[in-house]
Design a protein around this nucleic acid. Sequence first.
DNA 1: TCAATAAATGCACTTCCATTGCATTGCCCT
DNA 2: AGGGCAATGCAATGGAAGTGCATTTATTGA
Lengths: 138, 138
Amino acid sequence: MIPSDEFLESKGIRPTAMRLLVFQHLTKSKVATTLSDIENAFAKADRTTLFRTLKTFEQKRVVHQIDDGSGIMKYALCEEGCNCELERDLHLHFHCTNCGKTICLTEQKIPHINLPEGFVAEDANLVLKGICDKCSGQ
Amino acid sequence: MIPSDEFLESKGIRPTAMRLLVFQHLTKSKVATTLSDIENAFAKADRTTLFRTLKTFEQKRVVHQIDDGSGIMKYALCEEGCNCELERDLHLHFHCTNCGKTICLTEQKIPHINLPEGFVAEDANLVLKGICDKCSGQ
DNA sequence: TCAATAAATGCACTTCCATTGCATTGCCCT
DNA sequence: AGGGCAATGCAATGGAAGTGCATTTATTGA
Ligand SMILES: [Mn+2]
Ligand SMILES: [Mn+2]
Ligand SMILES: [Zn+2]
Ligand SMILES: [Zn+2]
């Protein structure tokens, strides 16, 4: 397991204290994380800094932003070995309408869709909504 | 072609003047429509009324709401003959990053996805982003 | 080492859209 | 006509993203 600071540096990100904390928080989380989640996790942190930290992470392809339709953006670490640098990792996301949690289903890729003449797709977002495994009692 | 007021009544909606205008505006539009679009179309209308009109239409399955990830909700008429009353019509949507327009691709249904044990999907949203036919010059 | 420079952070403020409260108006039915 | 409910209009609120700018912290290079 490569240390966090080395990892961030390998991505071209200066490993400040704040960034390391955010990164490690994301590492621990099994579900996609909101800005408020992180804000609440370390009471000391300023929202703007966290916001910009996530933005930096996103630009450097450390995290991806997830719009699950809840109105609140979520973030999750990119998969190790995903080739985000070259093309987006188009896996799908599941949003539980019961507990509100959103998780990456990294194994489930968004299927290829044949579009009508003239349409060129560059990105895709597929969100399934329903009841997650925890909430369905399995 | 069934008259608008009869159609709305058949859906359990009182056909007020405002509602008829909104409905006809939606009928004419080839692309998904925002609240502001409608607001600008009839300078006289109040935003709140339009908002609640769309909400009513949505509840009565006259329109469906589209979250294309732009941060602004869009609305489009439900297909004639779609069985929205029973289950959602899970077609996909295309959002053009050039002109900002979003269109329903009602022919293209969201493919069925096999989920891991314990996950129960009740709804799905698939948005493709890219360049639309108009903007790609086809 | 120290000054110059650049990057990151913190606070306040703004923007944008969705949403609500409440008073008023309009419609329908008896 | 009048009672009652539905629809409307105006004002205000809320939540989240995003920006401006001053301050602090880190890096560089003389
Ligand atoms: Mn994901
Ligand atoms: Mn549609
Ligand atoms: Zn759940
Ligand atoms: Zn376009």
